[in-house]
Every structure is written in structure tokens, then in C-alpha cells.
Design a protein around this nucleic acid. Structure first.
Lengths: 206, 206
DNA sequence: GCAGCGGTTTTCCGATACGAAAAGAGCTTT
DNA sequence: AAAGCTCTTTTCGTATCGGAAAACCGCTGC
């Protein structure tokens, strides 16, 4: 990708510029993580055991932290190291706060299941919440079991829902009742009782 | 968690031992990534632009790399930084499927917020769903903002809820409306409209 | 034997990260 | 407008990192 430089790369001006830009990306992320918690430099310094001046310089990208300090900071903040780099480039923005008003998202339909995927504009969320209606006119919304890696939470808001999971007896849920399961298992929902049902589904991963 | 040491932590012997063990973990991983590609130190040195001696010392954990060198190495190897710290992996039991019936879980109360944590018996879930009621008799359920690492999704099932986030204007939500945010930000909910409100909250991490 | 060779570790200094203390930079109060 | 306060940046001496070269450690062949 970059040079496979036989040249010993003695810190040309452009290279040090690039290095500084990289450090600034890291620094911005560090500052976001700190600010999101409402902490001052001094508070993070105390929690992590890293000097204020060091954190200040790291956040501004004027200094390249060593592994030791990065680890101390990660632990002080309460994230694992991967968090620092989870974002390189684009990802779920720390400090974000989004509101979903009624009917704001595109309605999607598959068979007798009508739903909207909330917050679809946020990239790389940890969770994907969906609000939907199971129409009673079909016994099952899909032909076959659905499977996807991750975990799934479903709660019934209105009506009665029957949850089918591969190799298990169907489970019938009333309003306020919920299921939590490994969504790699085949699964399928249907409205029960001859009435449309409202459900909220939250998935992880995808 | 660790010391909130007023002591300046001047590298006591045990601390440097720990730091070295941590570095060794990192070093093992670096060496694995290199060996997996069948590369020698010299080959990685050429691809990354980092000196052989530096890589050698890093792999053995005798030296803490700076961010700059780590980034060069990651690019030379062809992984992103998160790869270096790729996680310990899942412990959520695959294939699980759990049902929550009404009133099955212990009611918890803090101030004017009454809730039950669903599926609390499942360890290491990716999501923590909670079903709760915000009583209208208090303006705010807690004295201060709540903060915890991870992301949070809240949807109003019944009534009106005002969501306060640190440094933002309060947001008022009606039934069916929701918010999604970085829960490291200070946040707080309250019932609005003089009526009790029912909400569903789903958190990640914690 | 020992010479040659691919690979890794050690040595040794110049470059740079690190932390304590001092200096700024906004604020609110009196 | 000075004093006080909180938070951030700068300064500067020291500890540590970083790289070129030398030393080391199996190997294999002659």
C-alpha cells in the first residue's frame, strides 16, 4: 500500500504530517470518550494514572502515546482497547443522541409483516430496533425460518403473538411479554387470536 | 477499579510487572500475526518501515511501542488497529431461547422509577432489556445524571416521557417514539403530563 | 572443525514520550 | 478589575523508545 521503501524512511516532512494526522484521529476519539463521560483531564488522569499533560498532548495529536499509556487510559475510561480503534474512519459516533418520531422511518413490508427500522441513519449501532405490525390475515409472515448471527429481543406491545423457533414448541406471548434468543436459530413470528399485533424487535450484530 | 492513587504511581515493581505482562500479551499477538503470514522480522520491517530491533523488542514485551509504530505495523501486516486487540470472544450461550412472562422478574425501585430487568438469569447477554414505569409523583427519578458505557435505546409504550441528556435540550416523547444514544453521556428520564409512563429500555455493555 | 547463512537478540546513542510544575485561558464573584 | 476558580496548554528535565550495527544462535554444507 504505502511505500515498501528500501529507503529507511528518515521522517520526511510529509510522513511526519501523515503521522500527525493519524495521531489526531486517535486524539479526537480519546477526547470524545472522555467528554462523553463528562470528565475533565484531571478526572481521567486520576482514574487512569496517566499525567494530565500527557493526556492533553495525546488528545491534540502532538504526541504518540506508548502502548502502556494507551492501556492505562482504556482501563480508566472503562473500554477495551479495541474501542479506541473500533471507529477508525466511520462508525457509531460517541456522544450521539437521536430521536425517532412517529412514522418518521420508511415502512417496509414483507408478506404480512409491516415494520420500520428505527434510526437507520446511524451507522454501526450496537442495536437495531424495529417497530412493526404483524397482520392477522396471514398465518405466517414468511415461508421459512429466518436466521441471522447475533441476538434478538422481541416484546409484544399489542395483541397476541406466536413465536416459532426451529426445533421447539411454539410460544404464545401476550402484550408485555417478551423473548430473548440466539437469532442464529431459525425463527418466525405470527399474529395470534385473529387480531393484528404490534411488536418491538431489537437485534444485535446483523 | 484500580487505585485512584493520589500517589503519583512512580512505577512500583509490581506495576511494572503488570505493565510488562500486558505488553507481552500484545507482543504475542503481534508475533502470531507475523508468523501466521510466514514473515520474518526483516520482512515485516520492510513492509512496515519499523526497525527489526523495535519489532523484536515489542514482540517480547520488553518495550512499549508508541501509537505511531503500532499503526505502521498494523498497516504493514494489513489489519486494522482493532485486530491487535481483537476480543476474547463470545460467552453468550449459543442456541439459547428464553421467555419472559408478565411479572416474572423482580421489581426494582429507585425513586419514582419502578422496573424489572428481563432475562436477568441469562449471563453475558449482548442486550439488557428493562420494562419500567416512571411515576408522575416525582419530577425526576434520580438526583443526578446516569452514565454507563455502551448504547441505549428507549421507547415510550404509554404516556409522555421527557428525556434529559447532559448539555442538550430536553426531548419530549409520546407513545411509540424513541431515542437511541451513547449512554456514556449523562442522561435522565421523567414522566411528563402528570401521568405515569410505561417505557422499555434496552442497553448494551454496561 | 569452521565458514556461510537466515533469523533473532543485544548494544548504544540520538530522538521522543512522560510527568510535575508553571503559565494561560475562560468563567464567575465580590 | 482584581481575585478566585476550573480547566487546559506549555515548559523542561528525565526516563524510555527507536534504529543501525554488531553480536548471537542454530542450522547446513564442505
Amino acid at each position: 500500500m504505502q511505500n515498501l521503501a528500501p529507503a529507511p524512511a528518515p521522517a520526511t516532512p510529509e510522513q511526519s504530517d501523515n503521522a500527525e494526522r493519524d495521531r489526531q484521529d486517535f486524539g479526537r476519539r480519546l477526547r470524545d470518550l472522555r467528554r462523553a463521560r463528562g470528565w475533565t483531564l484531571a478526572q481521567l488522569a486520576e482514574r487512569s494514572g496517566v499525567a494530565i499533560s500527557t493526556i492533553s498532548k495525546a488528545e491534540r495529536g502532538v504526541m504518540a502515546l506508548t502502548y502502556d499509556r494507551m492501556l492505562q487510559l482504556a482501563r480508566g475510561i472503562g473500554v477495551d482497547m479495541a474501542e479506541f480503534f473500533a471507529s477508525e474512519g466511520e462508525s457509531y459516533a460517541p456522544g450521539s443522541f437521536a430521536v425517532a418520531r412517529l412514522g418518521e422511518f420508511r415502512r417496509q413490508e414483507t408478506g404480512s409483516y409491516v415494520y420500520e427500522m428505527l434510526f437507520s441513519e446511524i451507522r454501526n449501532k450496537a442495536m437495531t430496533p424495529m417497530l412493526g405490525t404483524l397482520r392477522a390475515d396471514h398465518p405466517l409472515p414468511f415461508d421459512d425460518f429466518v436466521r441471522h448471527p447475533g441476538q434478538e429481543f422481541l416484546i409484544v406491545l399489542q395483541g397476541v403473538v406466536t413465536v416459532h423457533a426451529e426445533g421447539r414448541d411454539p410460544v404464545t406471548l401476550r402484550a408485555g411479554e417478551s423473548v430473548y434468543f440466539d437469532s442464529a436459530q431459525g425463527h418466525l413470528y405470527a399474529a395470534g387470536n385473529g387480531q393484528d399485533a404490534r411488536i418491538l424487535v431489537v437485534c444485535t450484530e446483523s
